[in-house]
Nucleic acid binder design. Structure first.
Lengths: 189, 189
DNA sequence: GTAGTTAGTGATTGAGTACTAACTTACTTG
DNA sequence: CAAGTAAGTTAGTACTCAATCACTAACTAC
């Protein structure tokens, strides 16, 4: 048994929960599965967090923060097409290396309505606030052009959905997506 | 009690299941809830379908078929920008009138990986096949231009995600999205 | 009208799950 | 070393849920 501070343990739980929730969603993931991945007993999770929802929320917020940081770091010192290219590449890398982050995003989107109908408006607010922060993060380096930013986010969502569906990288659905292809398409207009 | 043929009842179940699964996802929806919405006893669902998964699959397939038909009908006899405009408007209408269809789409995307890891490859295949049929349906009227079709699908996925997150229609995230705005943006390049 | 079929229900079961309570083990500090 | 505290566990509870079984009610064809 490896002892850790509660704070460190909470970090481990967030990482494990992200992977598990990414796969099964809120209802399809048991606290048992999360605890097993952390390497800790299931009841102990309830010492670290007030309940399952709190764990989901923490994982969701972390996921958004990480994505924001990814774009902020990738676009640092760049603007316009350079920033677009850099952020696109950074996201492609995330998909390959941290697929759970993108699935967690999807899971948190689909969880909003259910939470809202159960009277939990806080969760939806948090998700929307996260989205806006993400939006603003890419908006500035893309030249503060609303259409440009919207298009960038749209491509991101398409990538998320295609990846979620499990299309292999060589499949033709990805053809029109890579930055080079996009730029080529735009230059030909 | 209203008696129906098994086939009619199955249709009712698919409609009810679409609404319930759209809200709670596969694991967040009980067969009890579906049965209640249909107005039938819970065990009877298992006479009409072999199991819960079969109900989810049927609802998912129906949802894709309906979306394909929506685009096919909207773009009938049109091509290029006209078809783009018509399909965009048709989708906007679907979001307003049949929000469950769009949420069901999201739920089916996020269900693929979990199903795949449980050894069910059929479901993922079905979802991907549905996507490709949808893709081809919009590809032809859009002039068989890969970049154009990809962009259209990307905007569709962004709309799905924003709607899932519960952004109200007057929120600024929708600004860059409506067809007029997109065309305006492109004409200014 | 009666025999057969189709639509539908009530009761139940067994597995899983979020969460609690009571207890134990290890670290830290005076 | 003694006492307090922080980390962690085992056992258990109350509940939900998919699926099954045995049964009843209604329609249909002869």
């Amino acid at each position: 048994m490896v002892r850790m501070s509660a704070e460190e343990r909470r970090e481990s739980v967030i990482r494990a929960a992200t992977i598990e929730f990414a796969r099964g969603g809120y209802h399809g993931t048991s606290t048992e599965a999360i605890a097993r991945r952390v390497g800790v007993s299931q009841p102990y999770l309830f010492r670290l967090f007030p309940g399952k929802k709190a764990i989901f929320l923490a994982a969701a917020q972390r996921c958004v923060e990480d994505t924001i940081r990814t774009f902020a770091e990738a676009s640092e010192g760049l603007e316009g097409e350079d920033a677009l290219h850099a952020m696109g590449n950074a996201y492609t890398k995330v998909i390959a290396e941290r697929p759970e982050r993108l699935m967690m995003q999807m899971q948190m989107y689909v969880a909003v309505k259910a939470a809202e109908e159960e009277g939990d408006h806080e969760f939806g607010e948090s998700v929307r606030a996260g989205w806006m922060r993400l939006w603003d993060t890419v908006h500035v380096p893309l030249g503060a052009d609303v259409n440009e930013t919207t298009t960038f986010m749209a491509y991101g969502m398409l990538v998320n959905c295609l990846a979620a569906m499990g299309f292999p990288p060589e499949h033709r659905v990805w053809e029109g997506l890579y930055p080079s292809a996009r730029l080529k398409g735009r230059l030909e207009i």
